[in-house]
Amino acid sequence: MRRIKTLAIFFISAMLFLSISYIAIERVNGQNLYWGSRGDDVRELQTKLQRWGYYDGPISSVYGPQTFEAVKDFQRANGLAVDGVVGPQTRAALGMSQQRVTAAASTGQGVSRSDDINLLARIIHAEAKGEPYEGKVAVGAVILNRVRNPAFPNTMAGVIYQPCAFEPVKNGSINQAADDEAYRAARDSLNGWDPTGGAIYFWNPATATSRWIWTRQITLRIGRHVFAH
């Protein structure tokens, strides 16, 4: 009985602790540095991380996957919550100045495409793991070609989440974080690189079950994928 009681207390306190720390993270997220942040603060962060040997990427002022990994390493080494987000505690540990009050953002600042790129990178990662780099760019290009094609949805999310379209959406592997290379391939395809010559279909001949798909006009093969329109 005693043991059950201790166990119960342990669980309840663990749950409480988790929910509190979760709320805490949520609360401060708004003003922190995280994947996709840009600017002088990120430059300062990268410089510090590089000086201490956590980071070997370029000092680019852009918080990308390499910076993300470096921040996590730093947090791990310093006993901080390993979330890859530079909040007040990580800031203090890094010896960076505390949050400056930023002037109100000017009106009319356009939307950034950073969310699109995350989604695209994840589908590329899930669909083309282990493919050559141009094969990854090609998968990204097919998604973007579909957005521009009348016979498909007109938004990137619409294309990617279209039912029965992509295996990773069905089995949930689209929710895995994309690696560095997938991220880079997503950016190249968003910037117009298209090795497929305008393809809107791709499939792996080893696993494709549909006969219909072979009636399409094939443009080329890259790695294990056949591209067509």
Binding site: P150, A151, N154, G158, Q162, P163, C164, S210
Partner: peptide, 25 residues
């Protein structure tokens, strides 16, 4: 465009509705 969006998010196989999707676009 709203019709096209709704149609493309229904679980129909692409090869059986592509002409209809295209018509709406």
């Amino acid at each position: 465009y709203l019709a096209q969006e709704k149609l493309t998010q229904l679980p129909f196989n692409h090869s059986t509705i592509r002409q209809t999707e295209k018509f709406l676009s």
